[in-house]
Amino acid sequence: MTFSYYPGCTLKTKAKDLDRYGRKAAEALGVTLEELPDWQCCGGTFSMSKDEIASKLSAVRSLASAKDKGNDLVTLCSACHNVLKQTNDAMKNDPDFSAKANNYMKLDVPYNGETNVIHYLEMLRDRVGFDKIAEKVTNPLTGKKIAAYYGCLLLRPGKVMQMDNPENPTIIEDFIRAIGAEPVVYPYRNECCGGYVTMEDKALAKKKSNKVASSAAENGADMIITACPLCLYNLNKNADESDIPVYYFTELLAEALGVKD
């Protein structure tokens, strides 16, 4: 099983663990992740303005490059996943945007959203299969009560992400079961941690992060897992009312598969 892989900037610097464990786990599962040689920063956030063209082009470039490789494109960071899927959707379904983007980029063959973008979790669920993962687990996390934190960017907007029920998702809970642990469902798992507002309004970011972390703790979770470096940062730094630990889901996957170090 071979996929093109889009790591994104943060995974090369502050979120190296998310990337490193993701690659090790994939290898253990017999999945080949081929890093796109010429990927560029996705832009961090998708502009909702229809007349923002230039700021979306770097994502289009990566998508077009993946099309040439011919494999589905796997992303790991929630934000990259969100930007790439939304940009791809706009290239496919917004003729005005795709015409302008293609015009600007002057590719040999115009790009019209042909690349299939999936999140690493979707790859685990739909291509590898959680049952297959469970079979390969050598070091099950038995007895651990884990709260899945989806945040906003993994699932929303639901019509574009098409990953799971945005209000009552199960993909990470099923993942948690596959690695032998017990999922903790709590109501704020799909509410925002504050995101980039931590740059501008620490108080707001603290309020939002605390709400998520305390909701998980209140429901008896030992730890929180996430796919997003910014969520991890906010829940670690800004959720100062609780000391519940936060991990990347790939770290636990690598641990369960016995390939952590």
Binding site: P187, Y188, E191, S215, E218, N219, G220
Partner: peptide, 10 residues
């Protein structure tokens, strides 16, 4: 007004 979210608490 409308309800936006119902959060079951522990």
């Amino acid at each position: 007004g409308m309800v936006g979210k119902v959060a079951p608490r522990a």
